[in-house]
Computed example of a mutant assay.
Amino acid sequence: MPVSSLPALLGALSLPFSLQAASTATPPFDLAGRTVVATFQGEGAQIYACKAGPDGALTWTFREPVAALIESGKTVGRHFAGPRWELEDGSLVQGKMAQSQPGASVQDVPLLKLDVVSHEGHGRLDGVTAVYRLNTRGGVLQGACTTPGAMQSVPYAADYVFAW
């Protein structure tokens, strides 16, 4: 999906929380010795699928994120399965989870530190070695699933910090 089509897709989501600017609170992960390359607000949805677990019971399983990356009120990129982040300048990074901490409430997806495992293209994300998901709001699916293969999306927002 091209970055330019994200605003229309995400406009259909109703976000049940206030989307605030990045918090000035102390980050939950140690950023000492790192250089912050960019910070974007992510707005979108966490997508879940209803699947049978090892015991045969149906459970919601995280499938993928779908989010716009926003800077100064303008969509400049997207976040999607992998997990990957792609900017309009063609730079793309893929991450692998390194650390996780609980969100501020049970409705908030966890805060994450992800190590970058691959790069594509050239642009602002060149040389980035870590991505941090901070200040999460929403994204956790609650309730039982009853239909195998059913999908649910849960609106969320987060700040994404890219560093080396």
Rank of each mutant, 00 (worst) to 15 (best):
S5E: 11
S5I: 03
L6W: 08
A8E: 01
L9P: 00
L9Q: 10
L9V: 10
L13R: 01
S14L: 01
S14H: 08
S14K: 07
Q20S: 14
Q20R: 09
Q20H: 14
S23A: 12
A25R: 07
A25L: 06
T26Q: 13
P27F: 13
P28I: 09
A32W: 13
G33A: 08
R34K: 10
R34Y: 13
T35I: 06
F40D: 07
Q41G: 02
E43M: 03
E43Y: 02
I47E: 10
I47G: 04
K51F: 01
A52S: 10
G53C: 01
G53E: 13
G53L: 08
P54S: 07
D55K: 03
T59Q: 07
W60G: 00
T61G: 00
R63W: 02
R63V: 10
E64Q: 15
P65H: 05
P65I: 06
A68M: 06
L69C: 14
I70E: 09
S72H: 14
S72V: 13
G73Q: 11
K74A: 14
T75H: 02
T75E: 10
T75C: 02
G77F: 02
G77D: 03
G77P: 05
H79N: 10
F80W: 15
A81C: 04
A81D: 08
G82C: 09
P83Y: 09
P83T: 07
R84E: 13
E88C: 05
E88K: 08
E88W: 01
D89F: 14
G90H: 11
G90E: 05
G90I: 12
S91R: 07
V93Q: 08
V93C: 10
K96M: 09
M97L: 10
Q99C: 05
Q99R: 08
P102I: 04
G103T: 09
A104S: 15
Q107F: 05
D108R: 08
D108P: 12
P110W: 05
P110C: 11
L112H: 04
K113A: 07
K113V: 08
D115S: 15
D115C: 05
D115I: 04
V116C: 12
V117P: 09
S118I: 06
H119C: 08
E120P: 09
G121N: 09
G123C: 04
G123K: 04
R124N: 07
L125G: 07
V131M: 11
Y132D: 01
Y132W: 10
R133W: 04
N135R: 00
N135K: 03
T136E: 01
T136I: 03
R137D: 03
G139A: 02
G139F: 12
L141P: 08
Q142I: 03
Q142L: 05
Q142N: 15
T146D: 11
T147F: 00
P148T: 03
A150M: 01
A150R: 03
Q152A: 14
S153T: 13
V154A: 06
A158G: 01
A158D: 12
D159A: 01
D159N: 09
F162M: 08
W164H: 11
W164I: 15
